[in-house]
Design a protein around this nucleic acid. Structure first.
Lengths: 225, 225
DNA sequence: ACAAAAGTGTTGAGAGTACACCCATGC
DNA sequence: GCATGGGTGTACTCTCAACACTTTTGT
């Protein structure tokens, strides 16, 4: 049985790139300047070369569009409906990336008329099945935020507890109690003081950093014992 | 940009098929009768046709090997390392399936010299990266068991609480407290009595069934409030 | 002095965990 | 009547959730 006996689908990766900006959770989208879906918006993505892994392809897309490397990247899901691309059979392996706000440097991609950030809560018309990809990415991000420490990937290296809490509130879409938040995160032992303070209006705030050696997954509450 | 401008990888689905049998968690494997990895064991899988979705391909593989339909099937992960298949670039979308013990009917597949069940805890040498696929599948199954109700998919339609507890113990690989298990599962309100009893040695046991309308996900304990 | 944001404790409710004996049936 | 598996309750600990005032700085 030779591999060449089969008609092959095309394989792409799409990367949902999240960041926090303007007190909002935003994603990077590219306006398509060719049919199909001309003028609609899409997540950065492209074909997987035969000599690169899926993750390498996703990282390449990410760097092409944002210039960033070494960011959080996680495989999300593989979308493979027969008719998801009218040009032919295209299977896409979706990833999501989290980048800290200051590292932003969007660039116009080769097949894009325009590249910009959009609020995840207020999206333009999307090409292909990218609405499903984005809503699943948001669901996964919220879920992971609740039982792991991915939230730090959206913040700069040092941050105040108020900034951290605001990040969680933006992503989760709900207000959190300040005292409970602080007690819980400090007890989780995943951050440490830098010793510095951030000044501004009001009382200066202690700065913290994420502890790289922290064990940041918490056991889920079991439905069954 | 035409789709044909790109050299395409091949795409397969592999299905990790779990069942409970002989007080053990088992997976269905096929002995390869052609190179590469001739004589080693592999999960059922095959190429995705251009006119079927990924899930349809996985269901087709599942039915070809076991004859079962309408079982629990969930996408696991997509494995896309460049060198995972020595014959060329093959990306595989892995699924896992849970089937109740009585529905077992393994059949010899076209490219298999032998098909049989193996304990997930005592596996033969595996082809490709199927050891990684199986260990990830077990991890995911255990994880889902703890916060959802997938465990019922491994049992027949009616079951006793002792049978349910034994299923959980086999999958999780640890003993559970009988009183706590019963209290928690009954309070979760996901099963109901059928009114019948199973007789045998000892006192007859109440039979239960899964409530289809049950809300079977429990909120994970949050790391952060 | 006042505006603005940082920081700090307690209490009540619910869930988890550990643990040992009686019950109903078949033989 | 005894062997076998089914079925039951309580006490302690820990985590969660709700809730308001004081502290430190800049202007």
């Amino acid at each position: 049985m030779a591999l060449s006996d089969y008609e092959r689908p095309s394989v792409t990766t799409d990367v949902v790139i999240f960041t926090l900006q303007d007190e909002d959770l935003q994603v990077l989208l590219i306006r398509r300047k060719h049919p199909p879906f001309e003028g609609m918006w899409a997540t950065p993505g492209g074909f997987v070369n035969v000599d690169e892994s899926l993750e390498e392809a996703a990282l390449r897309e990410l760097e092409e569009e944002t210039g960033v490397r070494d960011v959080y990247l996680e495989q999300l899901y593989t979308f493979g409906a027969v008719d998801r691309d009218p040009r032919g059979r295209v299977i896409t392996v979706a990833y999501f990336a989290l980048i800290p706000a200051p590292d932003i440097d969007p660039r116009a991609g080769s097949d894009a008329a325009e590249t910009r950030w959009w609020s995840i809560y207020d999206l333009p018309p999307l090409a292909f099945d990218h609405d499903a990809i984005l809503s699943y990415a948001l669901e996964r991000l919220r879920y992971k935020l609740e039982y792991s420490a991915v939230g730090f990937e959206l913040l700069p290296e040092t941050f105040t507890l108020s900034e951290l809490q605001a990040a969680y509130e933006i992503v989760l879409g709900e207000a959190l109690d300040k005292r409970n938040f602080r007690r819980k995160i400090l007890r989780a032992d995943v951050i440490e003081e830098t010793g510095d303070y951030r000044t501004g209006e009001g009382r200066p705030a202690r700065l913290y950093r994420f502890r790289d050696d922290a064990v940041a997954e918490v056991k889920a509450r079991r439905l069954f014992p």
